[in-house]
Amino acid sequence: MFQIIGIVVLFAMVFGGYTIAGGKMGVILHSLPYEMMMIGGAAIAALLISNAPSTLKGVAAGFGKVFAGPKWKKQDYKDLLSLLFQLTKTMKSKGVIALESHIEKPGESTIFQKYPKVLKDHFATDFICDTLRMMTMNLEDPHQIEDAMEKQLEKHHHEALAPAHALQNMADALPALGIVAAVLGVIKTMAAITEPPEVLGGMIGGALVGTFLGVFLAYGLVGPLAARLKEIIDGDAAYYKIIQSVLVAHLHGNAAQISVEIGRGDIPSTAQPSFAEMEEALQNAPTDAG
């Protein structure tokens, strides 16, 4: 919502100020299609040249994320902690054998099925199951599991940030591409040097529209969208860090409820449930671990 408001304010302030100052929109509107074709087309071409198909898909999906906001809400964090509570409690109270059916086939697990949004996220599900599976191997050094989890998170986050980096690279290139369009406009103007001054003035003004568009799109639109996308991806990464916090706490011998409380403390403040809310969620959580 705020992104849409921001875009409206951006266009209103820039073009409104230009018009109020006596600027004529006719020059911009006349040159806009050609300049946008050169600048926008070159920017998209550079994006296609410099990125893998998976990154390009991420860029397309990223625009939806920018306007939709963070994927994980307060209830999702409560569900995740409830799921981890049941899994770690099952492991402590009933042993590894009772846990195996849940981590080997999470889609058929009576615990995972209670939390469909977590189950739908393949990385979260695999991260939980793979880590618990490592714990069942009776590794002598628990820090090995911590290190493995950290590397998995770093890899996933690096890959998730690729679309935001691609969009930022596009923003960085736009001012230079605007100059390219402007230079082409100057070349066109110089080829018509015998025309009257009013004609040349319009042609020079049209050429300068290219420089304006490159800078305007870079710093007013594409750059902020890239920054917002990165912010959302960084925020969503906190969800996976909670998994790490809870399972590491469990790995060090803490009770299931203590491990969950440690994880709750790492939830971003805007989505963090209170102690009482989390306690109520755990009390109401289904206990069937069959």
Rank of each mutant, 00 (worst) to 15 (best):
G206P: 09
L84E: 00
I4F: 13
A98H: 14
Y18H: 11
F2D: 01
V183E: 07
I258S: 04
L177S: 06
P286L: 04
A12T: 12
Q86R: 05
S50H: 14
E277L: 13
Q113E: 08
G223S: 04
E279W: 05
N254M: 11
E150A: 15
L177D: 04
V27W: 09
V199K: 08
A226D: 03
E261S: 00
Q113M: 15
E159F: 01
P53A: 11
K73P: 07
L83I: 00
A160D: 13
P273S: 13
A173C: 06
A148W: 15
L99I: 07
I44T: 15
I111Q: 09
L208P: 12
G223D: 09
T136F: 00
E159L: 04
D126G: 14
K71T: 11
V27Y: 02
I145H: 00
P273N: 10
V260Q: 00
E35S: 14
L213A: 10
M137C: 07
A289R: 12
K89A: 05
L282G: 04
H250A: 11
E100H: 09
F127S: 04
Q144K: 11
E140R: 12
A164S: 03
L119G: 07
I44N: 12
I5H: 06
V66R: 02
N51P: 06
A281N: 08
Y240D: 03
S245G: 05
N169E: 03
V180A: 14
E100T: 14
M170G: 05
L251V: 02
F85G: 02
I145N: 02
N254T: 10
E261L: 01
G220A: 05
S54I: 03
P116R: 00
G26V: 11
I243M: 15
T90D: 11
H143N: 14
A281E: 14
P53Q: 01
G214E: 15
I4K: 14
G6N: 10
G26W: 09
P53K: 08
A227S: 09
I28R: 00
A21C: 07
L184K: 06
L153D: 07
E100V: 12
E104R: 05
L29C: 13
H30C: 07
K241P: 02
F15Y: 13
G6H: 04
A42Y: 05
I187C: 14
I20V: 15
V246Q: 00
P224Y: 03
S109D: 05
D236Y: 08
A124W: 08
K117H: 08
D288M: 07
A162H: 02
L161G: 03
K57E: 00
K105M: 05
D236A: 10
G6C: 12
A276P: 12
I111N: 05
D234M: 06
A45D: 02
G178E: 08
S274K: 09
M134G: 06
K241Q: 01
K73M: 10
G69M: 15
A160N: 09
K74Y: 12
Y18W: 12
E108L: 08
G178N: 10
K117T: 13
L174N: 06
